[in-house]
């Protein structure tokens, strides 16, 4: 992957405007088809699943190297994953769904026809932190103001940036008819939910 451009330029997508989304493809560290794929998934999350505060990440928050492919992050309308231990604790404390805020999630866009391998999953996980950043360092101030205006409750039990069960991401797989399916992938042995 060429390092010609400063890889440090993820874009903030305004959930209300799709026009702003297109700005993300200005930084050409990834091939156009991968950028298009990320945008497709971003649109699906935005319009079909009512996610908010979506953005596309092109570089790793840890090493600041380019990611294997652009990743999407955003806030789901309600929590998409609750660790079983956490669920038990919340039940014991009598917490309700509304009391516990949503967590920002990583989303890995893929196409159904692609072949994946353990190495590729490993590389993606090596590039990400447990919790995706809501904004780039330059935008942090702006973001803080936003958060003050529209507070998003952070999880009461979880320290900021740490996740029960370690790193996880949402594997978004786009089919030929642009159906997107979402699967949670954990890095390591994480016991299943007792739905």
């Amino acid at each position: 992957m060429p390092l010609s451009q400063p890889s440090h330029s993820p874009t903030q997508a305004d959930p209300t405007s799709t026009a702003k989304v297109a700005e993300g493809c200005g930084t050409a560290t990834h091939p156009a088809y991968l950028q298009a794929l990320a945008r497709e998934v971003q649109h699906n999350l935005l319009h079909q699943h009512n996610w908010t505060s979506l953005r596309i990440h092109t570089s790793s928050p840890l090493s600041h190297e380019p990611l294997p492919r652009p990743l999407v992050s955003g806030l789901p309308p309600h929590r998409i994953y609750v660790h079983p231990d956490e669920q038990i604790e919340e039940l014991k404390q009598g917490l309700k769904e509304e009391d516990v805020g949503v967590e920002r999630e990583w989303v890995l866009p893929t196409r159904l026809k692609e072949k994946w391998s353990l190495r590729r999953f490993g590389e993606v996980f090596d590039g990400i932190s447990e919790e995706p950043a809501a904004s780039t360092p330059d935008e942090t101030q702006e973001e803080e103001e936003e958060e003050a205006a529209m507070p998003v409750q952070t999880h009461v039990n979880v320290k900021h940036g740490k996740r029960r069960g370690g790193k996880r991401l949402l594997l978004a797989t786009v089919g030929d008819d642009s159906t997107v399916v979402y699967y949670i992938v954990h890095d390591g042995i994480v016991k299943p939910r007792q739905n």
């Binding site: 490993g122 594997l171 699967y183 949670i184 954990h186 390591g188 042995i189 939910r193």
Partner: peptide, 18 residues
Amino acid sequence: NREAGSALRTFCIEWGGM
């Protein structure tokens, strides 16, 4: 730290429910 002491890496997949 269940991964310690091994070069093996595991990933667990669950349905996203959406």
